[in-house]
């Protein structure tokens, strides 16, 4: 199997895994909350995704829609919004501070971990003026920001808390 095919299959598997995660971890009665999270995350993901590629900080040499976009459609359209859905729906709102802190750190860490693995071993993503800690930082910030939007949207002003 050529490397190209191999990488395309890895990207395709992200679609399959995302759908499985959504099916498994979105309870039917909370499907509307999931939609809010999913749709909201697409907006910052699209803008930031385009910005980092435009500035030459990141490259996605092998990707879906490689004529239409040079950024990662799969990550910005699907994978990141999916993570945001899981993040918002299972956020440990009423748990102790350290539990919330670990939760906030865990998501970006896992996502950055996967990104570093892909960067090192595939041609799906290459850092050209970027480093893993930038991913960690931006992913954390955007996930938490989206969580604030989510709590405001579903619960009103009084529900929004810093963490």
């Amino acid at each position: 199997m050529s490397y190209f095919t191999k990488y395309i299959l890895i990207e395709a598997s992200v679609w399959v895994i995302s759908f499985i995660l959504l099916l498994l971890f979105v309870p039917k009665e909370r499907i509307r909350e999931a939609w809010v999270s999913f749709l909201f995350m697409q907006a910052p993901a699209w803008i930031f995704g385009l910005t980092v590629v435009e500035l030459g900080l990141l490259q996605y040499p092998i990707r879906f829609f490689d004529t239409a976009v040079s950024s990662s459609f799969t990550f910005e359209f699907l994978a990141f919004p999916t993570m945001s859905v899981l993040y918002n729906l299972h956020y440990p709102t009423n748990r102790k501070l350290w539990v919330r802190f670990c939760y906030i750190v865990a998501y970006p860490s896992v996502m950055t971990g996967f990104e570093v693995l892909l960067e090192g071993n595939t041609n799906l993503i290459k850092y050209t003026g970027w480093d893993w800690y930038w991913s960690l930082l931006t992913i954390s910030a955007v996930l938490q920001f989206s969580y604030w939007f989510f709590t405001w949207f579903t619960g009103g002003k009084s529900k929004v808390r810093f963490m």
């Binding site: 435009e54 239409a68 040079s70």
Partner: peptide, 10 residues
């Protein structure tokens, strides 16, 4: 907009 990053009408 974003001429390097996309060929779409952003």
């Amino acid at each position: 907009l974003f001429p390097e990053a996309t060929r779409m009408n952003f």
